[in-house]
């Protein structure tokens, strides 16, 4: 990447007037890559009545905050977002567009990039500037391997980073100008008609405050075996949670699910039983202070982030742990 040329445009996601916390991670990535390559950093927000969100971002170190205020963008739609974003790219001509790999970004960024003849280099977990190249690291085979990838086509390049790759709270403070940027969107171009967002889980369990969590995954095999893990959680005085397949099968309620579609937790102890550690699960728990993994597959990705690992048969180890915990109480 040639120094000084182009500039970096960071996408700030706003939902119901609030900045998605993950967007600070993208902004932090922008600050770091900008400093390393001598490029200016700008951010862009889309919506209606989101001045407060723009002001919040403008209190960080960056050049410009582009505020796109349009009634057609009041509720997120892929069509509206792509149409607006294309115009902002046309006006600001960035060399690099950075995003956090949220569900919303997954919904529109591939379309945005493709509409400009580009491809999104998505869900990256690291970067390295190498001469003219931006080398990005992506997980493949569900985290069992990683790949170093470079965008090769014309700029702008589109890159999204996995949540947790950068620390949003490390964003440098500063003062940026807020620029009102207008776009033209014909409401008829927006094909998706969204209804109200809603939550399904009624009696929501708040796992985010639990200091100790025992979590169960697919390795448990059958619903009746969940009891084994429940007993362990009780013996340790811990909350019981699960990975997605367990909740999909209704073996435990949805409000006990950890991961990108469930809750994000950072307890003192996270004990993962029979969880292989798909990326979508890891993003929900990798902030835990101490991670223990029990799994029969020594190559399971969960061991990449575990402090303590036990490779073996959970049906033997879990009852032994329960007995030991009861003895120590």
């Amino acid at each position: 990447m040639a120094n000084g040329e182009g500039g970096i445009l960071v996408y700030i996601e706003v939902t119901e007037g609030r900045v998605n916390r993950a967007s600070y991670e993208a902004l932090r990535a922008g600050q770091l890559i900008g400093a390393e390559t001598g490029q200016e950093v700008a951010a862009v927000l889309f919506g209606q009545g989101i001045e407060a969100a723009a002001a919040e971002i403008a209190a960080r170190q960056l050049q410009t905050v582009h505020l796109v205020n349009d009634a057609a963008l009041a509720s997120y739609t892929a069509d509206g977002m792509v149409r607006a974003f294309q115009q902002v790219i046309g006006q600001t001509k960035p060399a690099l567009v950075l995003l956090s790999h949220t569900y919303e970004v997954r919904d529109f960024a591939p379309k945005l990039a493709a509409s400009l003849g580009r491809v999104l280099t998505g869900d990256c977990i690291g970067y390295r500037v190498d001469g003219q190249d931006l080398v990005l690291t992506r997980q493949i085979f569900q985290g069992k391997m990683v790949a170093d990838v470079v965008p090769t086509g014309e700029k702008p390049w589109f890159v999204s980073f996995q949540i947790g790759t950068f620390r949003g709270d490390e964003c440098e403070a500063g003062t940026a100008a807020v620029a009102l940027t207008s776009v033209t969107i014909d409401a008829g171009e927006i094909r998706q008609k969204p209804e109200q967002r809603f939550k399904e889980a009624k009696a929501a369990v708040d796992l985010t405050q639990a200091p100790l969590i025992v979590s169960v995954g697919r390795g448990i095999k059958e619903q009746k075996n969940i009891e084994l893990v429940r007993k362990l959680s009780e013996a340790l005085g811990a909350e019981l949670s699960a990975s997605r397949p367990i909740c999909d099968n209704d073996w435990l309620p949805m409000d006990r699910q950890i991961g990108s579609s469930g809750q994000t937790v950072s307890p003192k102890l996270y004990l993962a039983v029979g969880i292989s550690g798909a990326i979508q699960h890891l993003v929900g728990m990798k902030g835990a202070r101490t991670i223990v993994a029990i799994n029969r597959d020594k190559d399971a990705p969960i061991f990449e982030i575990a402090d303590y690992g036990i490779v073996g048969d959970l049906f033997e180890i879990v009852p032994a742990l329960t007995a030991e915990a009861e003895k120590n109480r």
Partner: peptide, 10 residues
């Protein structure tokens, strides 16, 4: 539009 340089065990 993108190229894999190499893959490896993390």
């Amino acid at each position: 539009r993108q190229k894999i340089l190499r893959i490896y065990v993390p």
